[in-house]
Amino acid sequence: MSKAPKLSRIALFLALGLLALFFLTPLYVMLAASLKSMDELREGSLLALPQAPGFAAWAKAWSSACTGTDCGGLQPFFLNSLVMVVPAVALSTALGALNGYVLSKWRFRGSEVLFALMLFGVFMPMQVVLLPMSQVLGWLGLASSISGLVLVHVIAGLPGTTLFFRNYYAGLPDELIRAAMLDGAGFWQIFRRIVLPLSTPILVVTLIWQFTNIWNDFLYGVVFSGADSKPVTVGLNNLANTSSSVKEYNVDMAAALIAALPTLIVYVLAGKYFVRGLTAGAVKG
């Protein structure tokens, strides 16, 4: 016990442990509450382990809890979110990659100005576009539909995805592109055969980023959706706000966890690529 390094180690782990506790406690409370019955919740402490853990609250949250006047649980909202998030993420990422490729490797007169203007989109508050966007969706006949939500998310995501790819591609040597041009490859061939295969890290970062943003979005979801196209965040809100005689905290917690689960899974599966991609510089070789 006399060695100084050991003491500093203990302090380090103590600090890390405390921080982990601080951040994980809410998750624990949610998880524990979702596995308890209402009776147990009323009597026991918030932090106590569930006496008889069960998934009744989860089942109810999924398929029979009331959200307003409907009592079909989160299920339809969850499916809406899935149908919305897949094309929205795929399109915004693909277009961002293409934009980044053009803005970094096929510069034209005014492309820098265009990029600077696009950057405004990154910093623009979402609320600003609500009214004009609903007008546009109306003109396009996409109001209150999932397609409309997809369109909104693609457009809202483009500045960010473009920025990601543009900056990543700026690190790819221009000589690679020139070599491919001399080898006879065209715009699309260079993109598909040279640039895309080198994009894995930034692709993963962008996919996670977009998935999280779009899945967790509430504002666009509540404003632009119709009765049958509400995403899971709106469903969760309605579920938690539907007043009945008793507030079912266990069901609320289960519903919140269900809504958060996809993003959690994505982070667990691809989190290490996320960190790696954010810190990766140019491609070596």
């Binding site: 690679l176 070599a179 491919a180 001399l182 055969r193 295969p197 070596k284 070789g285």
Partner: peptide
């Protein structure tokens, strides 16, 4: 109908 050797070689890393 030309071919070029670049300073950085510009070999395709992938």
């Amino acid at each position: 109908d030309i071919a070029m050797v670049f300073q950085s070689y510009a070999l395709y890393p992938n």
